[in-house]
Design a protein around this nucleic acid. Structure first.
Lengths: 239, 239
DNA sequence: GAAATAGTGTCTGTAAGACATTATATT
DNA sequence: AATATAATGTCTTACAGACACTATTTC
């Protein structure tokens, strides 16, 4: 990896994505299985989806992350945010490497996972409420990357509208509250929750209701699908 | 930059740092002048200090940032935080490049700036209260990087103890309040400020006073120099 | 004692937590 | 009518903002 012009080595550069959703009432992250080939690092280990930047195809880092996201989920524009970078001489046996980590939130409703060219398998792995990781042993330093992503998500949930991106386009306030509770790992008081969501101007009614064996619930959607909303205070309960 | 093992190109990788301090009552950022040599990109332009990773010398990204910080300021451990990464095929005329941007806060008291090997000159550039940048035209996309760093700093000041890292080790509460006002660009109410700082357990008294032509002020220092403190609410004034 | 800044106290407004109450559908 | 969940109302608590007031030094 020596540069002919610059006469010094540059590290390997990858982009990895922590893709979160809510599956069967729990927070889950998308994992891909690394190839079986013995010349590959961490063969057969589960890992966050990602890989090298394609200097011809990717105009910038975000485009690279979007491409990888689309390869795995088929979705073009779920919520996508840069988390941070991890780089050093120890994290990849092939040498000094840097990975740009993104995290994405999406609704798994009707989603078909796709195995990529370099991934034999794909799955959703559950993240328990008091944990920051999954049961599987992950490749590289992906345990660290995932823990950072989970912490960022849990932290921002306290004061932003991020969990709304884990739901399909239309949802009831009870469903939204439930997602907050799943991500936070603790119950949220209904009245306070609704006041907050209402005051923040986060959602708007759609002229439909969710029917069930009891009183039907009003359906809502996000006013702006693009940007998260910041609340003036956190959800922190009384000490 | 083709990898012999992996058979594809990797981008150039740099680390840049936005080093902030308070100089003459205003927020300021440290800039270095790029070399005069015509083969260099942006000759003679001011830029954020930074440069390529030294794969032999730097164990990881943070170590690389610390090395560059020490080269310019002589300081070993001021506040240093990862801001984000910018990468693409347009930002450097030499090709696809990624820069890892850090930001640092330090007290300029008694600091001697040092010109680095690749920088003919060093200076503090003032950032006006309603601006996110400096008067000089900066090299590469450093205007964008600097604006992001300033916004992150201003944003976090609303709910963290970050400005304390812009002061020398011992300071009075009035001095601390003044730094908050400089970074926020608006006055802060004294009583509320002191209650907040007190409740957060941010500082502790040292047995000394700052003497002047009036009532002397109690000197304080941070309880923990390492980590910033998060306040439960922001400083936002009433709307 | 005048000046100047340090430091404290009190009142108010806003938003969240706790908890009770009302509303509206199905079976 | 019973049941289940949706939606709202009221009371309390915590903390920030506004502003007045007291304290302690130098000149």
């Amino acid at each position: 990896m020596k540069s002919p012009k610059l006469d010094f080595d540059t590290p390997l550069v990858t982009v990895d994505i922590a893709i979160f959703s809510v599956i069967e009432g729990a927070l889950a992250v998308l994992l891909v299985k690394r190839p079986d080939a013995p010349e590959e690092p961490f063969p057969n280990h589960w890992a966050l989806p990602g890989g090298f930047i394609d200097l011809d195809q990717d105009a910038d880092l975000l485009a690279c992350a979007r491409r990888k996201l689309k390869e795995k989920t088929g979705l073009a524009s779920p919520y996508l945010e840069q988390l941070g970078a991890w780089g050093g001489n120890k994290r990849d046996p092939r040498g000094w490497s840097v990975t740009q980590v993104y995290f994405s939130l999406l609704s798994a409703d009707g989603l078909e996972l796709r195995a990529g060219a370099n991934a034999a398998d794909v799955k959703w792995a559950r993240i328990e409420q008091n944990e920051t990781g999954v049961d599987d042993r992950l490749a590289f330093d992906h345990k660290t990357l995932l823990a950072a992503a989970v912490q960022r998500l849990r932290g921002k949930v306290e004061y932003t509208s991020l969990p709304a991106f884990l739901l399909p386009e239309e949802f009831t306030l009870s469903e939204l509250q439930r997602v907050y509770e799943i991500v936070l790992g603790r119950p949220v008081e209904k009245s306070a929750f609704r006041k907050r969501v209402g005051d923040a101007g986060l959602v708007e009614k759609v002229p439909r209701q969710r029917l069930s064996a009891n009183r039907p619930a009003q359906l809502y959607r996000l006013k702006k699908r693009a940007a998260p909303i910041y609340f003036p205070r956190t959800f922190s309960p009384r000490g």
